[in-house]
Nucleic acid binder design. Structure first.
Lengths: 122, 122
DNA sequence: CGGAATCCTTTCGGATACTG
DNA sequence: CAGTATCCGAAAGGATTCCG
């Protein structure tokens, strides 16, 4: 059936823009990249995404769960154990976000050089 | 020569994370997608990216210019004309960001359904 | 351990007025 | 037209404390 022609992120009222806003986000990118390697518990995720605060990790995971990108698994243990993993939908997002992360890593040298040039100009 | 092994966006102090932060951004994504179709002047860019304010457009373009992703062409006319276009480096970013935008458009139906399910659960 | 709640600071982003 | 400058409210995000 139809799908693309109706949605356009460039249209301010299009719902797809809300999805772009969630997905085009540095925390989302890093979390999805890490979860792409496999299911992980909260603490390990927090360690993997260096520097993320507990609050931000919790909030981002909630949003991703709400959008159907991440699934939350709670184990009734003590101390508690909670694991997160990408859903099938979330897996389709892994490639684009991994590509974006790799872009940042592969081109950072040129970006840094450009910044230096730009800043030196006054 | 070497490049990737040294950079990792997951490391909080790695410069590549600053680049990811700029690139994994909804305004950046929309602007780069639009500029991928060709050089455009400020006003047309503002029209194309529906709902963006002049301030945000100016600031984002400055940041992209500083990072060497966008080039600014000023014509000494009256009224003034300023055009923006992707640099060679910026062009390499177009595909990943277009892919991300398309992801948002192609999967928004499932995302909306997931949100409804999630929100209905209380 | 995995949060939720609170507080606080920083950043984002819109609106308006003004200028070359 | 393409900004810049200013002001202000909203949202992001960090630190800390508390709890099952």
């Amino acid at each position: 059936m139809s799908q693309q022609p109706d949605w356009n992120v460039l249209v301010s009222t299009c719902p797809s823009r809300t999805s772009l806003a969630r997905v085009a986000n540095k925390w989302t990118a890093m979390i999805v990249v890490v979860l792409g390697r496999g299911r992980l518990r909260f603490g390990d995720l927090r360690t993997a995404v260096e520097g993320i605060s507990g609050k931000v990790l919790t909030e981002t995971l909630r949003d991703l769960e709400r959008d159907g990108l991440v699934e939350r698994h709670v184990y009734a243990e003590m101390p508690p154990r909670v694991e997160y993993e990408l859903t099938a939908l979330g897996c389709t997002l892994h490639e684009p976000l991994l590509a974006l992360s790799r872009w940042a890593e592969q081109h950072i040298a040129k970006v840094l050089a450009a910044r230096e040039t730009y800043d030196a100009r006054r």
